[in-house]
Design a protein around this nucleic acid. Structure first.
Length: 345
DNA sequence: CGACGTGTAAC
DNA sequence: CCTTTTACACGTCG
């Protein structure tokens, strides 16, 4: 079977750990932009969720519904990354086959006694001061649905025989890959629960979503999914920044783009990664996203990155557009270390 | 068929 | 009012 582990309110819990006085109060971890004037909620602890403060909520809105006990803190990724590494190494000491899915989630293979294994992992993580929810199922999709099922501090095992019933009454938006848009379209055709989806007319689904997505939705409705633990090779890397004020000046946006490229290139350099595609990401004042990209010969220098990005920007800014956020992205990634050892061979 | 841009989704 | 980073599917165009 496959297990899925999810750390409960991870960023907020990390902050509580280094400052226990926070415990019991609503805690909101924030991404601040424009000197704190603007921003969004990254994570909140369960006390803050009680107040209705959710991930991705605009900070202005979170401030409105907060009480005077509520503590707002800036994200500290480096610190959470450190804690995450501790957790992942505990997990790897318990199970050898692990797929780190994000900073606070992993899949792992379970060969026998799932409940004992899960309890052991949860206890080890608790010893680090963290709370986790574990789901175990016949594949990754069901495992993830199971870990979601009774968090926080949850443990849910769903067997192959149980999976259909387990999913039946779950709302479709709980399905990984179904967000707001897909939920609305499903609602249009009277599909609200997984059970409705299982019984839905195939040709109607194909009409709404196309053949591939229709098939994928159907298979999820009955709890089918992959058991493979995927490689963690990164396929792209990007850096995007909200500018201090919106601008339609190419000269100004260009200096911000340069900063994004510098920061992106630092990360590429640290990890010895070359790239063969460069893009810019522009988010306009209306929050609409635009991307422009071009294929390059395999490159690794900052100049190659910035020159490519800048030429895309010059082209894009020739029309009149008010820019809010600007960023750069690279793909076609190549590990230069491995590349060198291959060439030597 | 490959390159490119957009939309959707998740963390 | 509205962050950041990654992935993938799909449509279009040449």
């Amino acid at each position: 079977m496959i297990g899925h582990i999810d750390l409960d309110a991870f960023f907020a819990r990390c902050e509580e750990l280094r400052n226990p006085e926070l415990e019991g109060s609503p805690v909101v971890i924030c991404v601040y932009t424009r000197g704190g004037d603007s921003g969004a909620v990254s994570t909140s602890n369960y006390e803050a969720r009680e107040l209705g403060i959710q991930s991705a909520m605009p900070l202005s809105q979170a401030r409105e519904i907060a009480d005077d006990e509520t503590v707002f803190l800036p994200v500290d990724h480096e610190y959470y990354r450190e804690k995450s590494r501790e957790v992942m190494s505990v997990l790897r000491s318990q199970t050898s086959e692990v797929e780190e899915y994000s900073i606070d989630e992993s899949f792992f293979r379970v060969r026998n006694s799932p409940e004992t294994k899960a309890r052991k992992i949860k206890a080890d993580i608790e010893a680090l001061g963290l709370s986790s929810s574990i789901g175990i199922g016949p594949n990754k999709f069901v495992a993830k649905m199971a870990s979601e099922h009774d968090k926080p501090d949850g443990l849910k095992i769903v067997t192959d025989d149980e999976k259909k019933e387990f999913l039946a009454d779950k709302p479709v938006e709980k399905i990984h890959g179904v967000g707001g848009k897909t939920r609305d379209k499903l609602e249009d055709i009277g599909v609200e629960k997984c059970e409705d989806l299982r019984q839905a007319d195939n040709s109607l689904l194909v009409e709404k979503f196309g053949r591939n997505k229709a098939a994928s939705l159907k298979s999820k409705s009955i709890g089918e999914g992959s058991k493979d633990l995927d490689s963690e090779e990164r396929k792209q890397m990007s850096r995007i920044k909200t500018m201090n004020s919106n601008s339609s000046s190419y000269r100004y946006v260009r200096t911000e783009l340069r900063k994004a490229c510098e920061s992106l290139h630092d990360r590429l350099e640290r990890k010895n990664i070359a790239f063969s595609n460069a893009s810019i990401i522009v988010i306009d004042a209306g929050l609409k996203t635009h991307t422009r990209s071009k294929k390059l010969k395999t490159s690794e220098s900052f100049d190659q990155l910035f020159q490519a990005a800048d030429s895309l920007l010059a082209d894009f800014m020739s029309r009149d557009i008010e820019v809010r956020r600007i960023g750069a992205r690279v793909s076609g990634l190549v590990d230069t270390e491995r590349q060198k050892s291959l060439e030597a061979f």
